[in-house]
Design a binder for these strands. Sequence first.
DNA 1: AACTGAGCCAACCGCCGAGAC
DNA 2: AGTCTCGGCGGTTGGCTCAGT
Length: 373
Amino acid sequence: MGRPPCCDKSNVKRGLWTPEEDAKILAYVSNHGIGNWTLVPKKAGLNRCGKSCRLRWTNYLRSDLKHDGFTPQEEELIINLHKAIGSRWSLIAKQLPGRTDNDVKNYWNTKLRKKLSKMGIDPVTHKPYSQILSDYGNISGILNTGNQIGPLNKNLYYASTPKPEPSSVLTSFPNTNMINMPMEFQNSPSNENIVPSLDFMSHQFQQVNINQETTQPHFFNEATSSCSSSSSSNVTQLSPLPQSYSCQPSQVQNAPSSSFNWSEFLITDPLPFPGFQQQQDRHFPGFSSSTNQSTFAQTPPLNFASGNEYGLNQVGQEEGIGKFDVGSTIGGHTNNNRLEASSSVSSFVNSILDKDSEMQAEFPDILDESFDY
DNA sequence: AACTGAGCCAACCGCCGAGAC
DNA sequence: AGTCTCGGCGGTTGGCTCAGT
């Protein structure tokens, strides 16, 4: 039953590609075009998995790819799109001609994330660290029920946090409530804009000369983990944290002891995206979470490149770079063929709106709160 | 010259939805 | 209807390069 396997994975070559192998793929594609990748290794005379051939082609060999460095315009577009839709690298890459999702992802991880962090902006939430502290402290103060369970575990912290600079100034947490975040709130997906991100925590600890043995808050010490990023016990059975550092549901070992129905808060697509509401408000004054799609379709086009709030170089709008033209796609008014958003993007936006409405209904108090940059 | 650590990036891993069988 | 692969995707890793010591 089913198809035969595409290749014998134990007998295929792995690792870096040689120029000869590249030439074989190029020759094959130029003669036959791209189609069934499982046939490519055999027909091209390669001892590689078809999936590996496809990746080599899409990420490196395609003739339309750029291999030079990212421009400031591309850089800012990536930042703005990441702010709007998170780590949907393929969607972001579609707005950058000649770039692959792998390119964008690597560039983000190696350059942009650090750059934002140095500027005092949390690269996950795209909010200033000071505001995250403020938001988190306020929420924690309101909802603190006495549970002292941290959303991040020690291993994750150590794995992600650079060694403190010897010259760092010894301070303390501005608001100790942040280490006592109530469990109920940690597990609400609507809390994503408020839970301190890993990057934020990393940044925060760079400002603190931590004596790991004596002064490190129990926030990081308390939990143990069976997965790479979350604690055990009842804290992280379902994680509200962004996908990049949350446990997969299959990794959950123990059912929550609470009668609270956590499954109600599970969403398969971890919306909302940090900053999306701000984007709506910024570009469409009066556009509320409850705005329906027909209203949305009548709004002006989104242009994520129009802002320059990070102090980076202004995007070259004269070249059309950065037109994330959601409005025109949905409304059917396309003015920029080169960078027109795909239908998947528009449906993606629709799903955002749907989720947003659901979240608004379920957590009105939290989502009504505005976040200003 | 040798070693070390950070930066970078190509490639792999594992998950998922769609569709073939 | 159930099983399986394919293709797409995001996350992670391995190895190369280079600067600093």
